[in-house]
Amino acid sequence: MRYERPETIGDATALLASAKGRAFVLAGGTDLLVRMKSDAFEADMVVDIKAVAGMSDISETADGFEIGAAVPCAALGEHAGLVAAWPGVVEAANLIGSTQIQGRCTMSGNLCNASPAADSVPALVAAGARVRIAGPDGTRIVPVEDVPQAPGKTTLKKGEFIAAILLPKPAQRSGDAYLRFTPRTEMDIAVVGVGVQLALDAKGVVETARVALGAVGPKVVLAEQAADTIIGTALDDAALEALAEACSAASNPIDDKRGTAAFRKHVAGVLARRAAKIAYERAGGK
């Protein structure tokens, strides 16, 4: 197995593009290193992107925030501007693993690992985040929800890797929230995760909303019909009930070791209701 630590995006994509066999991008390594210990895992090349310029930076731009692919989740929680703008995204990222894991793990890695249970992904999708993908033919920008394809599979092409996550500037009177269900308080993996982002008009009526569901299908679900149930409402009980029902309906989970399908559908609704209320309060709604 070859280990490479390029210093430019060009070198990194060239290495990945020219790799024979299976090549992997290493950022925090909290998924990859665990997989590498498994007997079933074989890698021909590992490209560590932590030395690539800009990968460890969080920058505030005119359009919002740009989060380098190697920024550990713990650093997100230490960035006051990001916490103020996207508390739901930051909370989601800091639910991953444990305190120690959060010191290494990255949102880009969480996304590329392509687990349907990834905590940061529904929050990013709800926030309308996009990713900048670097590849041999240059860069392209795609919505977060278009990256995962199926469990363990992404839409990235050979030679490509995520260079940064792009979060927009939050709209006025907006808020986001992420809640997940795990049997344990921490060091666990989401049985269901729900991200909600909404913006209010001056009267406190929901103007726009995005709802994303995790761990209820092969990939993150952007539940547009669920979002529609609360748009135009002041998030009254009827709206919350409709949201819960729509989220349960949008869920297409399986029975597995982490929970039953019926349980997941039900809890998706419960968490959507609770997350929406938090987002609504954060947006200034009363």
Partner: peptide
């Protein structure tokens, strides 16, 4: 212990065999 239809153990690890953590 959770077994699949094939009789194989589905959760041979601390991620899915959930012993409590301190905060539990």
């Amino acid at each position: 212990y959770i077994y699949g239809e094939d009789g194989r153990l589905q959760n041979p690890g601390f991620l899915d065999y959930r012993i409590p953590v301190c905060s539990d």
